[in-house]
């Protein structure tokens, strides 16, 4: 929850007091936050790697993953990074209409991904993999669930951004706000690049 607080903070321009490095406070804060998030996801991924083979009951990872399905949803998330970067680029050109359009498409692609994840979780649950079934189950749902929550937070931020942009209520530098939320969105995407390979494609 700290993330959107940072993303939405528009720093302080103390009159003419420019920053020592010439860089934006907000952007520096955002990059630091993402660096810190690496250790969060690192911990969850390591926990999964340690536990993926430990199945005392319920299905094994290799038997349950639906690679074609997950490949499609991974592709969708990857393409949402493209639409996000197009939104940032439109915002830098001060093209409000296209900014809103691309932000909306990004949010929709993100929502498709989350929808796919909900479908996947339900399917797995029906096949007997609950959160408490085995260590594999607990660590798999914890990792992908955390990622899903991050995507969902991103969607909320994108939609809020569209709404605020329409009413012209974004305080501060609009292009920078779009860029910051873009950074967060791409980060969520690159984490999925890792999860897709390490969790889904490489069998235990």
């Amino acid at each position: 929850m700290a993330e959107s607080a940072i993303a939405h903070d528009h720093g302080v321009s103390h009159g003419a007091h420019a920053s020592s490095t010439g860089l934006s406070n907000n952007k520096m804060g955002m990059w630091m936050f993402l660096g810190s998030e690496c250790l969060l996801f690192g911990g969850l991924i390591s926990t999964y790697m340690l536990y993926r083979g430990r199945v005392s009951s319920g299905p094994q990872p290799n038997n349950i993953f639906d690679i074609p399905f997950t490949s499609v949803s991974s592709f969708i998330l990857l393409m949402s990074s493209l639409t996000m970067v197009l939104a940032v680029s439109s915002a830098q050109r001060k093209d409000d209409r296209n900014t809103n359009l691309w932000l909306t498409i990004t949010a929709l692609l993100g929502a498709t991904f989350v929808g796919g994840q909900v479908y996947e979780f339900t399917a797995f649950y029906r096949e007997g993999l609950g959160f408490t079934t085995s260590l594999f189950g607990s660590s798999f749902y914890a990792l992908t669930g955390f990622h899903g929550v991050h995507v969902s937070v991103g969607i909320i931020m994108l939609m809020a951004l569209v709404g605020m942009n329409r009413n012209n209520r974004i305080p501060g530098d609009k292009a920078e706000v779009v860029e910051l939320i873009g950074l967060y969105w791409h980060f969520v995407d690159i984490i999925w690049i890792i999860i897709f390979t390490l969790v889904y494609l490489i069998p235990s």
């Binding site: 630091m32 660096g35 810190s36 998030e37 250790l39 969060l40 911990g43 969850l44 926990t47 536990y51 959160f131 408490t132 085995s134 260590l135 189950g137 607990s138 660590s139 914890a142 955390f146």
Partner: peptide, 25 residues
């Protein structure tokens, strides 16, 4: 702090999941 806090965050989340939602970590 920037890099250590997320690690304890993971550990605390796992423990919360275990205690509140019967995870098996």
């Amino acid at each position: 702090l920037l890099f250590a806090i997320p690690v304890i965050t993971v550990a605390l989340f796992l423990l919360t999941f275990q205690r509140s939602f019967d995870a098996t970590f």
